[in-house]
């Protein structure tokens, strides 16, 4: 494996006065690797992925992304975040902007690309997610699946070194899940480094190199995909799999 892109070392986190949400979490994602993070709701997996982009502060340990320590005051966080693509559960497209402008905003304002170059890049990515014809539409005029594909294209437009997916399909109507998963699979096969929080075990089987199982703020299991599905070592992962796979 090549250089690690994400290094999470002994991270702890809690909200306000409540108990810890993350307890001594350590995880590494290498370049070109696809890591699926799963676990029951409230296990801390969404919080963890938000910490990787410094959207949430951590209380202990450290997170290094692309060789830069997020806790280091000298690190230019906006610059770093620009190179970390993130896809949200509720898409979070900007409703007042056309699809094309959603893709161009950060390219021009953060990366400083000329507008024409940003548009060319945006159109190419819309083409890649099959939404070339929707560039002039507003997000509210698209279906949920289409919006999420636009959101993926928006993140890709920043030429990220890694893509983070935070339950990207769980707010979608069932018939729209596969169109988004197709885009994610294609992305994984193209060699993109990905950290994916999801319940879609089919996706994990298909493209993940490793599966990380979280429970109660801790990593209960971190195993190669095949090993995880065929012989999960931890009892909690076994229970989780049996519940999620019986249907």
């Amino acid at each position: 494996m090549s250089e690690p892109v994400i290094q999470i070392e002994h991270v702890t986190k809690s909200y306000g006065t409540g108990g810890p949400v993350l307890r001594d979490v350590s995880l590494t994602v290498a370049g070109g690797e696809v890591v699926v993070v799963c676990g029951p709701s409230g296990s801390g997996k969404s919080t963890l992925i938000k910490c990787v982009n410094a959207l949430e502060p951590i209380q202990g340990g450290r997170i290094v992304v692309g060789g830069q320590d997020l806790g280091d005051r000298r690190v230019d966080l906006p610059r770093l975040r620009a190179r970390v693509g993130m896809v949200f559960q509720h898409f979070e497209l900007f409703p007042h902007m056309r699809v094309l402008d959603n893709l161009c905003l950060a390219q021009t304002k953060v990366l400083g690309r000329p507008r024409a170059e940003a548009e060319t890049r945006a159109m190419a990515l819309l083409d890649r997610v099959g939404l070339h014809a929707f560039a002039e539409k507003h997000p509210g005029q698209l279906s949920g699946g289409q919006q999420q594909r636009v959101a993926i294209a928006r993140a890709l437009a920043m030429d990220p070194m890694v893509m983070l997916f935070d339950e990207a399909t769980s707010a979608l109507d069932p018939e729209m899940v596969s169109e988004v998963l197709d885009v994610m699979v294609e992305l994984a096969r193209s060699g993109m480094t990905m950290m994916v929080v999801t319940h879609e075990m089919g996706f994990a089987r298909k493209v993940a190199h490793r599966v990380v199982f979280m429970d109660q703020g801790q990593i209960a299991e971190d195993a190669p995909t095949q090993a995880f599905f065929e012989a999960p070592r931890s009892e909690r992962a076994q229970q989780f799999l049996s519940k999620i796979l019986t249907y």
Binding site: P78, F94, L105, A106
Partner: peptide, 12 residues
């Protein structure tokens, strides 16, 4: 999520 999405894109 709107603020989070903008922040994640690197906007100040």
């Amino acid at each position: 999520g709107q603020r989070a999405a903008a922040t994640a894109l690197g906007l100040t």
